[in-house]
Protein backbone atom coordinates (compact mmCIF):
# COMPACT_ATOMS: atom_id res chain seq x y z
CA UNK A 1 0.00 0.00 0.00
CA UNK A 2 1.55 3.29 -1.05
CA UNK A 3 1.91 5.73 1.82
CA UNK A 4 -0.03 8.78 0.64
CA UNK A 5 1.62 10.93 3.28
CA UNK A 6 4.43 11.19 0.73
CA UNK A 7 2.16 13.31 -1.47
CA UNK A 8 1.51 15.92 1.15
CA UNK A 9 3.82 18.47 2.75
CA UNK A 10 4.41 17.84 6.43
CA UNK A 11 2.40 20.11 8.71
CA UNK A 12 4.81 22.91 9.72
CA UNK A 13 5.72 23.73 13.28
CA UNK A 14 3.41 26.71 13.53
CA UNK A 15 5.41 28.31 16.31
CA UNK A 16 8.44 28.62 14.04
CA UNK A 17 7.21 28.69 10.48
CA UNK A 18 7.45 31.92 8.45
CA UNK A 19 7.11 32.92 4.84
CA UNK A 20 9.40 35.72 3.81
CA UNK A 21 9.50 37.47 0.45
CA UNK A 22 10.30 41.06 -0.53
CA UNK A 23 7.60 43.18 1.10
CA UNK A 24 5.86 40.22 2.66
CA UNK A 25 6.11 38.22 5.87
CA UNK A 26 3.61 35.65 7.07
CA UNK A 27 3.37 33.60 10.24
CA UNK A 28 0.80 31.81 12.37
CA UNK A 29 -0.65 33.49 15.43
CA UNK A 30 -1.17 31.07 18.28
CA UNK A 31 -2.98 31.45 21.54
CA UNK A 32 -5.81 33.86 20.85
CA UNK A 33 -9.27 33.00 22.09
CA UNK A 34 -12.01 32.64 19.49
CA UNK A 35 -15.68 31.87 19.59
CA UNK A 36 -18.69 32.08 17.30
CA UNK A 37 -21.80 33.89 18.48
CA UNK A 38 -25.09 33.81 16.60
CA UNK A 39 -28.49 35.31 17.26
CA UNK A 40 -29.47 38.49 19.09
CA UNK A 41 -26.17 40.30 18.75
CA UNK A 42 -27.45 43.36 20.63
CA UNK A 43 -28.04 41.16 23.63
CA UNK A 44 -24.60 39.65 23.25
CA UNK A 45 -23.11 43.13 22.92
CA UNK A 46 -24.65 44.15 26.23
CA UNK A 47 -22.99 41.18 27.90
CA UNK A 48 -19.63 41.27 26.15
CA UNK A 49 -19.11 45.00 25.94
CA UNK A 50 -18.16 44.74 22.26
CA UNK A 51 -20.12 46.39 19.43
CA UNK A 52 -22.92 44.32 17.89
CA UNK A 53 -21.73 45.08 14.38
CA UNK A 54 -18.54 43.29 13.44
CA UNK A 55 -15.64 44.22 11.19
CA UNK A 56 -16.22 43.55 7.50
CA UNK A 57 -13.93 42.16 4.82
CA UNK A 58 -10.49 43.79 4.97
CA UNK A 59 -11.85 46.11 7.65
CA UNK A 60 -9.66 47.36 10.47
CA UNK A 61 -9.97 45.67 13.87
CA UNK A 62 -8.42 47.26 16.93
CA UNK A 63 -7.35 46.25 20.36
CA UNK A 64 -7.13 43.01 22.25
CA UNK A 65 -10.77 42.04 21.79
CA UNK A 66 -12.93 42.57 18.74
CA UNK A 67 -15.66 40.93 16.67
CA UNK A 68 -15.65 40.14 12.96
CA UNK A 69 -18.90 39.77 11.00
CA UNK A 70 -19.18 36.37 9.31
CA UNK A 71 -22.92 36.25 8.55
CA UNK A 72 -25.88 38.57 9.05
CA UNK A 73 -26.46 37.21 12.51
CA UNK A 74 -23.08 35.76 13.35
CA UNK A 75 -19.79 37.09 14.62
CA UNK A 76 -16.38 35.59 15.16
CA UNK A 77 -15.07 37.05 18.40
CA UNK A 78 -11.32 37.21 18.90
CA UNK A 79 -9.58 38.15 22.12
CA UNK A 80 -6.24 37.88 23.83
CA UNK A 81 -7.84 36.65 27.05
CA UNK A 82 -10.76 34.34 27.76
CA UNK A 83 -14.10 36.08 27.37
CA UNK A 84 -15.81 34.53 30.34
CA UNK A 85 -18.93 34.00 28.24
CA UNK A 86 -20.31 30.48 28.61
CA UNK A 87 -20.63 28.22 25.61
CA UNK A 88 -24.12 27.17 24.60
CA UNK A 89 -27.50 28.87 24.59
CA UNK A 90 -28.10 32.17 26.37
CA UNK A 91 -31.67 32.99 27.30
CA UNK A 92 -31.18 36.54 26.00
CA UNK A 93 -31.22 34.98 22.58
CA UNK A 94 -27.72 34.13 21.42
CA UNK A 95 -25.67 30.95 20.99
CA UNK A 96 -21.95 30.63 21.65
CA UNK A 97 -19.52 27.96 20.44
CA UNK A 98 -15.76 28.13 21.13
CA UNK A 99 -13.52 27.68 18.08
CA UNK A 100 -10.17 28.41 19.74
CA UNK A 101 -8.46 25.53 18.05
CA UNK A 102 -10.84 25.08 15.14
CA UNK A 103 -9.88 28.34 13.47
CA UNK A 104 -6.24 28.64 12.58
CA UNK A 105 -4.97 32.24 12.36
CA UNK A 106 -2.35 33.58 9.95
CA UNK A 107 -0.97 37.10 9.98
CA UNK A 108 0.64 38.76 6.95
CA UNK A 109 2.55 42.02 7.08
CA UNK A 110 4.44 44.18 4.64
CA UNK A 111 3.65 46.46 1.70
CA UNK A 112 3.03 43.51 -0.60
CA UNK A 113 0.21 42.09 1.54
CA UNK A 114 -2.39 43.46 -0.87
CA UNK A 115 -0.61 41.64 -3.71
CA UNK A 116 -1.36 38.47 -1.77
CA UNK A 117 -4.99 39.52 -1.42
CA UNK A 118 -5.14 40.20 -5.18
CA UNK A 119 -4.15 36.60 -5.78
CA UNK A 120 -6.34 35.01 -3.17
CA UNK A 121 -9.65 36.70 -3.65
CA UNK A 122 -11.71 38.53 -6.25
CA UNK A 123 -12.91 41.00 -3.64
CA UNK A 124 -12.43 44.67 -4.51
CA UNK A 125 -10.22 46.04 -1.72
CA UNK A 126 -11.58 49.52 -2.33
CA UNK A 127 -15.20 48.52 -1.84
CA UNK A 128 -16.34 47.74 1.69
CA UNK A 129 -18.10 44.46 2.31
CA UNK A 130 -20.17 43.78 5.38
CA UNK A 131 -19.00 40.21 5.93
CA UNK A 132 -15.41 39.25 6.43
CA UNK A 133 -16.18 35.65 5.46
CA UNK A 134 -14.95 35.07 1.95
CA UNK A 135 -13.26 32.58 -0.31
CA UNK A 136 -9.51 33.01 0.10
CA UNK A 137 -7.26 30.87 -2.10
CA UNK A 138 -10.25 28.62 -2.58
CA UNK A 139 -10.82 28.01 1.14
CA UNK A 140 -13.52 29.50 3.33
CA UNK A 141 -11.76 32.11 5.41
CA UNK A 142 -12.33 35.20 7.50
CA UNK A 143 -10.10 38.07 6.41
CA UNK A 144 -9.61 41.52 7.97
CA UNK A 145 -6.79 43.70 9.27
CA UNK A 146 -5.37 44.29 12.69
CA UNK A 147 -2.59 46.71 13.47
CA UNK A 148 -1.80 47.17 9.79
CA UNK A 149 -1.42 43.45 9.27
CA UNK A 150 -3.69 41.09 7.40
CA UNK A 151 -5.36 38.42 9.53
CA UNK A 152 -6.70 35.28 7.93
CA UNK A 153 -8.71 32.71 9.86
CA UNK A 154 -9.10 29.33 8.18
CA UNK A 155 -10.34 25.92 9.27
CA UNK A 156 -7.51 24.22 11.16
CA UNK A 157 -7.69 21.19 8.91
CA UNK A 158 -6.86 23.33 5.85
CA UNK A 159 -4.15 25.46 7.46
CA UNK A 160 -1.33 23.52 5.82
CA UNK A 161 -3.00 23.85 2.44
CA UNK A 162 -3.30 27.62 2.82
CA UNK A 163 0.30 27.86 4.00
CA UNK A 164 1.51 25.99 0.92
CA UNK A 165 -0.62 28.21 -1.27
CA UNK A 166 0.81 31.36 0.32
CA UNK A 167 4.36 30.12 -0.15
CA UNK A 168 3.71 29.62 -3.87
CA UNK A 169 1.93 32.94 -4.28
CA UNK A 170 4.69 34.78 -2.40
CA UNK A 171 7.24 33.29 -4.80
CA UNK A 172 5.17 34.56 -7.73
CA UNK A 173 4.94 38.01 -6.17
CA UNK A 174 8.68 38.08 -5.65
CA UNK A 175 9.41 37.00 -9.25
Amino acid sequence: MRNLAEKWTVVPDWAEATIEAPGLKARAVIGLNQYLVSGNLDAWSAVSGLPAKGIGALGEARGDAYAVQVARDRLLVVSATASGIEAGWHADGFAVTPVNAGHHLFEVEGPAQMELVARATTLDPAAPSASAALSFAGANAVVYRHGGKLRIHVDRALATYLWTWMQTAAANIAA
Binding site: T9, V10, R119, L158, T160, Y161, T164
Partner: peptide, 17 residues
Amino acid sequence: LTGGELMSPVRRLPLEN
Protein backbone atom coordinates in the same frame (compact mmCIF):
# COMPACT_ATOMS: atom_id res chain seq x y z
CA LEU B 1 -2.16 27.66 -8.18
CA THR B 2 -4.27 24.52 -8.31
CA GLY B 3 -1.70 21.94 -9.30
CA GLY B 4 0.06 19.33 -7.25
CA GLU B 5 -0.96 19.34 -3.64
CA LEU B 6 -2.97 22.50 -4.11
CA MET B 7 -5.51 20.50 -6.08
CA SER B 8 -8.21 18.93 -3.88
CA PRO B 9 -6.20 19.43 -0.70
CA VAL B 10 -6.77 16.87 2.01
CA ARG B 11 -7.71 17.92 5.50
CA ARG B 12 -5.06 17.25 8.14
CA LEU B 13 -5.48 15.73 11.54
CA PRO B 14 -4.36 17.70 14.59
CA LEU B 15 -1.99 14.86 15.43
CA GLU B 16 -0.78 14.11 11.91
CA ASN B 17 2.89 14.61 12.68
